[in-house]
């Protein structure tokens, strides 16, 4: 991948201001997204993964840092300047019941991207909409229905159709299958993969479910309390998770295997996720970490190369690495 990445994020910071204080939702994040790849973003509630996704496409205003899209710094563009870039940066949300306007027909909803960006004439748009509906595996007759006449899975297909209407280079998928039943979830995952093959889109796939991420992603970034604690190619992360939090997440996966063959090496972690308003000093995971050391409360670990394309922010891993 010699060409520069589709999306480069440097030192990105986004705080939410609440009556109780400042939430460190996205705290100095670095990230690259390459053409045609799927970057999985995994973490528990309050880790900032959704905020990161929305900040990347400027649905939230970043507090500092840079977002570079295809060589252009889009961090501080105005709404009007931003508009042409939105063709390339789209999003699919978690809740298909909230993400479609209940008062508008599917046709109206799917015409919006074309009208806003002046694609196709009024005569062409209806057939473009029907083509789009067919592309996500529904019958074109769905065009004249309202969202409430569709099932959850069908609505999510429409939301995906809206996101890919302008053939964007990047789609943020913010927990798009978490609200769906298992069998419907499989349909949507297959659809997302098929569309990637068809139009070469890159995904940033946000989820709390490591199985889904592991199935879809090429690289996986693990977030904890606003920071990336580990980022690595999928196989690398799956076979040798380095950060203690990643290890804990993996051991918490419940695998649908017969008990006789399921691995049984649960390293459960104690305690609750600390408040993102007042995260622990030093390493943020130290309060729940089974292998915390004195240094972990003094200095916050940097995200450093740990071999095999992995980067980890952990004193234990980084320390041994520099020694050996």
């Amino acid at each position: 991948m010699s060409e520069h990445p589709l999306l480069t994020v440097r030192n990105l910071v986004k705080y939410h201001h609440t009556p109780n204080g400042r939430v460190h939702a996205v705290d100095h994040i670095d990230l690259d997204l390459h053409r045609g790849e799927t970057l999985g973003l995994v973490g528990e509630s309050g880790c900032g993964k959704s905020t990161l996704g929305r900040t990347l496409i400027r649905l939230h205003e970043p507090d500092s840092g840079e977002i570079i899209h295809h060589g252009t710094d889009i961090t501080h563009l105005s709404r009007a300047q931003m508009r042409p870039f939105r063709r390339n940066l789209q999003i699919v949300f978690q809740d298909p019941f909230a993400s479609l306007n209940p008062r508008r027909t599917i046709r109206q909803i799917l015409s919006e991207p074309f009208s806003i960006h002046g694609v196709g004439s009024r005569i062409e748009q209806p057939s473009m909409v029907e083509l789009l509906i067919a592309k996500v595996g529904l019958h074109p007759s769905f065009a004249d229905r309202f969202p409430h006449e569709l099932s959850g899975g069908q609505r999510q297909r429409i939301a995906i159709a809206r996101a890919i209407a302008l053939e964007p280079s990047t789609v943020i998928c913010d927990e798009p299958v978490s609200a769906l039943d298992v069998s419907v979830q499989a349909q949507i995952i297959n659809l997302l993969r098929r569309l990637q093959d068809d139009i070469g889109v890159s995904y940033i796939f946000i989820s709390h479910d490591l199985s889904v991420i592991g199935y879809l992603a090429d690289r996986i970034a693990v977030m904890y309390l606003g920071e990336i604690v580990e980022i690595a190619p999928k196989a690398q992360l799956w076979n040798t998770p380095l950060h203690p939090y990643t290890q804990a997440l993996f051991s918490a996966i419940a695998v649908p295997e017969p008990p006789s063959v399921a691995r049984n090496n649960r390293v459960g972690i104690k305690g609750d996720i600390p408040s993102p308003i007042n995260p622990p000093g030093g390493c943020r995971f130290r309060t729940r970490c089974p292998v915390a050391m004195p240094i972990c409360s003094e200095a916050s670990p940097k995200l450093l190369e740990a071999g095999g394309g992995a980067k980890v922010a952990c004193h234990l891993v980084n320390g041994t690495n520099t020694v050996s």
Partner: peptide, 13 residues
């Protein structure tokens, strides 16, 4: 605050 408005914003409406 509903997501469909965010979807419109992300389309540049």
């Amino acid at each position: 605050g509903r997501e469909f408005v965010e979807a419109c914003l992300s389309l540049g409406m």
